[in-house]
Design a binder for these strands. Structure first.
Lengths: 67, 67
DNA sequence: CTGTGACTTTTAGTCCGTC
DNA sequence: AGACGGACTAAAAGTCACA
């Protein structure tokens, strides 16, 4: 699943760029810690509203998270 | 739900630009006709793999469908 | 051709952990 | 700090008959 990989890499890259742990990011994004872990490993197929939540702490759009 | 609206409009706009009925587009995308109807009215919260399916017939990326 | 309600199956997403 | 598992609930996937 190509697109999941792309999201996974974007997420991890941006989170590490901000020096946030998965847990800290999860809190900021309002999602669960274990879910962030799964997403970064491309194990999940999130909905677009979740992608929007992921985008918010970075101040980017959902579209950019999938680019 | 902001992002669902954005997807809905992009989808309808692009489908009509190609002069495809919902049914014809559904066939091309490999999803059900009524699901397309729901999506264009913002009634569904699709996963990113569905967004990818929607993007394919237009030859664009999933990211562009959410832009 | 498209909208809609109802429906069943599948999976998204949470929460408890351990390694 | 993060990977990973099990069990659970909420919601999405996917389809249909009919307006």
């Amino acid at each position: 699943m190509e697109i999941r990989e792309r999201l996974a890499r974007n997420l991890r890259r941006r989170r590490e760029a901000n020096n946030w742990s998965q847990e800290e990011f999860a809190d900021r994004a309002g999602i669960h810690r274990t879910y962030v872990s799964d997403l970064e490993r491309g194990r999940r197929n999130p909905t677009i509203t979740v992608v929007e939540k992921l985008a918010k702490p970075f101040g980017v759009t959902a579209s950019e998270m999938l680019a």
